[in-house]
Amino acid sequence: MAKPKVIIEDFADMLNFEPEQNTALAPVQGGITEMDFSLMEPFPNHRFKLYEGQQLADMVDSVHQFGILLPIILWHTEDGRHLILSGHNRRNAGQLAGLIKGPVIIKENLTHDEAVLIVTETNLRQRSFSDMSHSERAYCLAQHYEALKSQGKRNDLLQEIERLLNPHDSDENSTSVQLEQKLESREKVGQEYGLSASKVGRYIKISTLIEPLIAKVDTGEIAFLAAYDLSFVENRNQQQQISDLMESEGYKVDMKKAELLRSYYETGKLTDTTMVQILSGEKTRKLKSNKPQPFKVKATVISKYFTNEQSPKEIEDTIDKALTMYFENLNTEVVD
């Protein structure tokens, strides 16, 4: 059965995002106006990728025919900047279509958390969560989590995510009732939205990776679970070293290497040398044993010297004696 498509209403319910009656998304007094594209700035650390290829071409064609139908939402900050909360693709398509301005709705008196919620909510409204890249999902969930945590909403889910983000700080004294509530919350999210609490926690943790590394998750160079373990290397300079080594030396990061990097980091043993040893595969290669490899004597050889009535123990003892005599004679010949 196909997983249900996560739409904006579902996602809002999941994280209990309940806008106030005077929501930041409601039309402001004065309504829609127009503004030059050159006066608009992208939202800082905005990780939702602009449309490309056919999707972008279709949007440019639509703008050519009908103009920009949906206003761009801007945040007029206290320092006088106009940051795009919703409409990065509309502005881009408008510019490519030859326009110099577009319709806007300007929001004022927003907190940063409120602005972030508008960015994530509107992006989820316009595209399916399942269609987003891993980095976009991680960004969206992390921003939602931080904004909602500051508002003190959905404490049960937020505490579960917190535990997933910090597995070593889990509360060993949790009651069975609390545990049951957490399991019910996780199961409900999984059933209704195809997104478990553990998956939410992993996405949020992955969002702490530097841009070059999380981009490799999008391209498939680093698997999702490997990226999760890698995100526990919290030193951003070391993350950058890992990224640089992957680029310069062509090293790959698989699950075993990511687990080792995490383990060495958490035990304070991740140095420049051990990092190279792990990424090059030196630490994950099995050491060759000095012991002789097992050898099986063919049945045709056994049948030449033994009968079916003889037990395996008798055959083994005879072979042992025969080999002892062989090597003793061999050593005698060498001495002579």
Rank of each mutant, 00 (worst) to 15 (best):
E266D: 11
N308T: 12
I72R: 09
N155D: 05
G268C: 12
T307N: 13
D58S: 05
G190T: 11
I100M: 13
L56N: 05
T120S: 05
S130W: 07
A147H: 11
F295C: 15
Q29C: 09
E184G: 03
V233W: 03
A147F: 06
V60P: 09
D113Y: 06
L15E: 12
D13R: 09
E249Q: 14
P292W: 10
L74T: 01
K216N: 06
E108F: 12
L117I: 12
K298F: 15
Q240H: 10
F11T: 08
H82Q: 04
Q239E: 08
N290G: 07
T324W: 07
R47Y: 13
N235T: 11
S303F: 05
S231K: 08
T120P: 06
H82C: 02
S176G: 03
V335W: 03
D169S: 11
Q55R: 02
V297S: 09
D229Q: 07
H88N: 12
K199E: 14
K101F: 08
N22T: 14
S128H: 06
L99I: 06
I161R: 00
A147T: 05
I106L: 11
D317H: 00
E34F: 10
S86E: 03
T23M: 04
G98Y: 09
K3C: 01
Q54T: 12
K291P: 10
S243W: 04
G220Y: 15
Y305G: 13
M325R: 13
Q159E: 14
V104N: 07
V63N: 02
V297R: 07
E266G: 03
E192G: 00
D58N: 02
D113L: 10
Y145C: 12
V335A: 11
G190F: 06
